[in-house]
Nucleic acid binder design. Structure first.
Lengths: 142, 142
DNA sequence: GCGAAACAGTCTCTATCTTAGACCAATCAT
DNA sequence: ATGATTGGTCTAAGATAGAGACTGTTTCGC
């Protein structure tokens, strides 16, 4: 049995079909937008890619590096990433098994775009927090 | 570090390169990375920002433009975006109420980064689909 | 030798989140 | 008067994420 092939771990739910009909505003051609967004849109995927930035990591190392993630979601996200060709998985049949995950060239090019987003986040984080305070204040007195 | 003393393939330390503030900050809402990612990580938020790209829209128009979204999630995502200062909400007390949502300058700067990600998606979509086929094939023949 | 720990996952149960869609009050077209 | 449109809110039901117990193997401490 191939790993994870039939358990309930990876629900293969049908993706939202908004790509097929579509308002021109988002959806000019096909819908690659869906493809990106559904993946970085996974709360953990982008974090994992970012974590693999400088060096490949093993499952447990990743689990420690992204503290809040559950093993289940880590496995699932890793699998999606592997499936899409953004990372590769190498199993070393050592004493205790070792599995190494590393970004593919495509994964690395994706990473660069993620990083530009991260840079934006770092720049704008103060402004965002300020906006939040203003918003809460306006709401409290309402 | 006792096992793997001779294998020694990978560092076992957690890299967390995406947390410039250190690992502790990740859990405390201080991490700007999490801040961005948790928001575009919302399946709908990025789509809304992209939809607002060229012109402000009213609630119903947005609802039509992003067909699969429920009113509830649209409202919620819009509120989050407003709260964070990425878009502004203007109510016109007309006959039937009209509410206009438009990107703030900060929202627009965020949009530009999103668009670079979308461009990446457009470029790499074929490769991703190819990778998926390979992956499925490899799995099927188990 | 025995129990524990670490490796990489997987499984189940439960908590949380999303969705669909009814509902609201006001106003306009038929 | 009926129904549609406006911008939402609320609730029940269904989908999803999270915690953590469990698997099986090997090496470590005692």
């Amino acid at each position: 049995m191939s790993r994870l092939s039939k358990g309930n771990l990876l629900p293969q739910t049908a993706p939202t079909p908004w790509a097929t009909l579509g308002p021109a505003s988002i959806n000019q051609g096909q819908c690659p937008v869906r493809d990106v967004l559904d993946h970085i849109g996974d709360k953990w995927t982008a974090l994992i890619v970012l974590t693999l930035k400088s060096s490949p990591s093993r499952f447990s190392a990743l689990h420690r590096a992204v503290p809040d993630i559950s093993k289940r979601m880590l496995t699932q996200s890793l699998r999606n990433l592997e499936r899409d060709g953004l990372l590769s998985r190498h199993v070393f049949p050592t004493k205790p098994p070792a599995v190494e995950y590393r970004l593919t060239p495509m994964g690395q090019s994706f990473l660069r775009h993620l990083e530009s987003l991260v840079a934006w986040a770092e720049e704008n984080h103060p402004a965002v927090r300020e906006a939040r305070l203003r918003f809460e204040a306006a709401n409290d007195e309402g």
